[in-house]
Simulated scan of single mutants.
Amino acid sequence: MRYLKHTAAALLGAAVLAAMPARADHMSVERWRAALTAWPGPNAPVKAESGKTVFVVTCASQGIGCVRAAQGVEQAGKVLGWTVQVIDGRGDPGAWNGAILSAIAAKADGIVLAAVPPMLVGDALQRAKDAGIAVVSVFNPKPADEDSIFAYVRPDHHAQGELAANWVAADSGGDAKILLIEDKQFPELAQRVDGFREALAACAKCEIVESVESTIGTMAQRLPGAVAAALSRHPDADYVVAPFDSNAFFAGEGVRQAGRSDTIKVTGYEGDPQTIEAIRAGGQAMTIANPAEWMGWQATDELARAFSGGTAANVPVPFRLIDGDNVPQTAGWLGDLDYAAQFKTLWGVK
């Protein structure tokens, strides 16, 4: 029944989007389904020095996107002859701070924060800056004011939230009842929620029936039960929108516990390998995908610019909407382009 309902609703999608205000046009669902064909940058060459030591601090091992970004740094670092040490942040601000202090003690040349919120490690970052260590943030939004971070490697999270809302509005035929999951610890996830709420307001019959709070450190234990309980309170809910794909996996467990797999569509963000497979198999409906390994290479590029005394490129990272109509045959969305070759050309290496 779910597929009959949503197939009929999808036929109304174009009309729903056409009726939405013009400000949503730049987040057209069809436009963002298309494969990436043009290199977005950076474009300025940089002489990458060898022999550097870099620490990568991940948000948590459960955060597949930040782990993939760390793997990208490892891959790129190997090309440049760097020593790269990855530390699991375990979803714990104490562990994040400790990892940065370990990098300082080891006299690292650079630090990459993989989805670690800078505002929660501010004192440690200032100590890193005082020690002359370059820091690059991955995933976190770039603030308006200058701080101790050299460069930010991130997509437009607010726009991703808008795009997710437009997809839900179109897919539901303009009549979605949504359980929204929020993780308020990470600023990029808050921006996604803000964009989602703002764009969804243009869909007159769409409604967020309840918001469920979650944290990356507890989602495996607590989120399935919280989602199942919320769905029991809202039998009319037909979409669960998670803030990232690892979270969507546990939200999906809650949907199954509630016995609602036939009536609920789960969406997320990141485009991780298990999610692409789940979309292919019909287990997850949609994701707004980031090329996480590419982001690790781009963070390495930014560090190379810092080490050479240059300025940060701060080029926003591309993203793509992936659902059952355009799911790729790759293990996770990798960005459609040969990003490794592009960066090697910039660095003058083979």
Rank of each mutant, 00 (worst) to 15 (best):
G173L: 10
I216H: 01
E162G: 11
S246D: 03
D245E: 00
V135D: 07
A226F: 03
A242H: 00
N166E: 14
K205N: 15
A248P: 02
P243Y: 02
A237F: 07
P224S: 06
A237R: 08
V212A: 02
L189G: 07
V241L: 15
W167P: 03
A201T: 14
P235K: 11
G132W: 06
F150K: 09
P143Y: 04
I178L: 02
Y269K: 13
D262G: 09
L163N: 07
G259H: 05
S214Q: 10
A159Q: 13
V255Q: 06
T218D: 13
D147V: 03
E210L: 05
I208Q: 01
L179I: 12
Q257M: 15
V227A: 03
Q257H: 10
V193Y: 04
A201H: 13
L189I: 10
V227R: 05
N166Q: 14
G268K: 01
A242V: 02
W167A: 09
R260S: 10
V153L: 04
E162V: 11
L163E: 00
K142P: 03
R233D: 06
T263S: 15
E210M: 00
K205W: 00
W167I: 01
A220I: 15
L163A: 08
C206I: 08
S211M: 13
E146Y: 02
G161I: 08
E182K: 15
V241I: 15
T215Q: 13
L231T: 04
H157I: 11
P235C: 07
G252F: 05
I208A: 05
A228H: 02
E253C: 09
T215L: 14
V266Y: 02
A251W: 05
Y152M: 12
A226H: 07
G254L: 09
I181F: 02
K142L: 08
Y239H: 12
D238M: 07
D194Y: 06
I181K: 02
Q185C: 07
R192G: 07
A248F: 07
E182C: 06
D175S: 12
F244G: 08
